[in-house]
Structure formats: structure tokens, C-alpha cells
């Protein structure tokens, strides 16, 4: 049976944008996800509670929550969920929605993701050295000094390049990503991504 609600809110949107996300309607609120999560103790709401809030149409509170940003993508919740809900994938979608709505939590590492994506879109490869320094300088300038020791050790052992690699056919990748972004910007069609 299709879940019906007066107007499609964040709940419906999150499900529609996540492959297999419609399973969320069957959530038993059993807490297997919250119990399994390695960073569950640091989340302001456990995944289970976040889903309850989502179903209760507490959209702003959900988008401002730090929960998805503490997800480490370990997939314990997904494989243990007795209702086979793709919880990790739902966390990705929630992050996207929080970014789109500009409401993400102050702890959120959306900027880290942005830096990462910036390098990938510029070079086609990730650039760990630049990433670490750029993100740390922006967000934790005091820590950078402490961490820089580690960075130098890594460079010395040949494990960090100080200049990024670049793929040869960058125009091709750019064209693909631009087209994907154009499609993604269109409203989600009925029936979601599946």
C-alpha cells in the first residue's frame, strides 16, 4: 500500500529520492539502527528517532540534525535492519536535502564534502593533502599546526603528494557531471528514482 499524506513533505521526498527508500514506511521503530551505529552516541538523534521525526513531519528539525553527518557509512544498520530499510542510503539523501535547504547542522562537514568534490571536479582524482589542509585551515585552524606534523611524516614516507594528479580527459568528465547535475536539478518524477 502506498503511504499517502495530504502533501508530499520531506518524508515522501526522502523516500522517493533513495533507491529502495520506500521501505521506510515499514519501520518498526525497533532501534536496531540506533543500537548498531558506531557513532550513535554522538548523534543528537539516533537514526530511529530521526525517522520518527521525519514521519511526524518535523522537517526543519530533521534537516538541522547532525545525525546524517555522523554516519560513517559502515552499513551495520542496513544489514541488521529487520525491515530491510536502506538506512545508510537514506542518510546520504538526508544530507543532500539538508544541503539543498541550506539547513545543515553546524558540525556538518558539508564543506569538507564540497572541498573533496571541488578537487574531483577540477582534477578527476581526489587530493588528500590539499583536502586535509584546506578543510582544516577553514574549520579548525588551531588544529592544523598539531596535525601538520603528521602531514609532513606522510609526505616524507611518500604517502602524500603535494600536487594533485589530473586525469587526461577532463572535458569528458566535466560534460558527464554537468549533464548529471542538470538532470538532478529537475524535480523528482513520480515514483522516485527507481
Amino acid at each position: 500500500m502506498v503511504h499517502t499524506s495530504p502533501k508530499p513533505g520531506l518524508y515522501e521526498q526522502i523516500m522517493a529520492e533513495t533507491p529502495g527508500g520506500e521501505a521506510l514506511v515499514t519501520c518498526l521503530q525497533c532501534g536496531t539502527c540506533g543500537g548498531s551505529c558506531p557513532s550513535g552516541a554522538d548523534m543528537d538523534s539516533t537514526p530511529r528517532r530521526l525517522f520518527a521525526m521525519l514521519m511526524a513531519d518535523m522537517d526543519d528539525a530533521v534537516l538541522e540534525s547532525n545525525t546524517p553527518w555522523y554516519c560513517v557509512s559502515c552499513y551495520y544498520c542496513t544489514v541488521r535492519c529487520p525491515q530491510a530499510i536502506p538506512i545508510t542510503d537514506l542518510m546520504y539523501t538526508l544530507k543532500q536535502s539538508a544541503i539543498a535547504a541550506g539547513k545543515f547542522h553546524k558540525d556538518a562537514h558539508a564543506n569538507f564534502s564540497d572541498s573533496f568534490i571541488g578537487y574531483v571536479e577540477q582534477f578527476g582524482r581526489s587530493f588528500e593533502f590539499g583536502l586535509a589542509t584546506r578543510f582544516q585551515l577553514t574549520h579548525h585552524p588551531l588544529r592544523t599546526v598539531r596535525k601538520s606534523g603528521l602531514g609532513f611524516d606522510m609526505v616524507r614516507r611518500g604517502r602524500l603528494h603535494t600536487a594533485p594528479d589530473r586525469i587526461r580527459n577532463m572535458p569528458q568528465l566535466t560534460a558527464i557531471l554537468n549533464e548529471a547535475k542538470r538532470i538532478a536539478a529537475q524535480p523528482v518524477p513520480a515514483g522516485g528514482v527507481t
Binding site: 525497533c30 532501534g31 540506533g34 543500537g35 550513535g40 552516541a41 539516533t46 530511529r48 528517532r49
Partner: peptide, 12 residues
């Protein structure tokens, strides 16, 4: 035994 105590909303 690790679980979420769902009535508190915290991992135990």
C-alpha cells in the same frame, strides 16, 4: 549487549 533504549533514544 548493545542496543538503543528507544524510550530514552540513547545507545546502551
Amino acid at each position: 549487549v548493545q542496543a538503543e533504549d528507544t524510550l530514552i533514544g540513547k545507545q546502551r
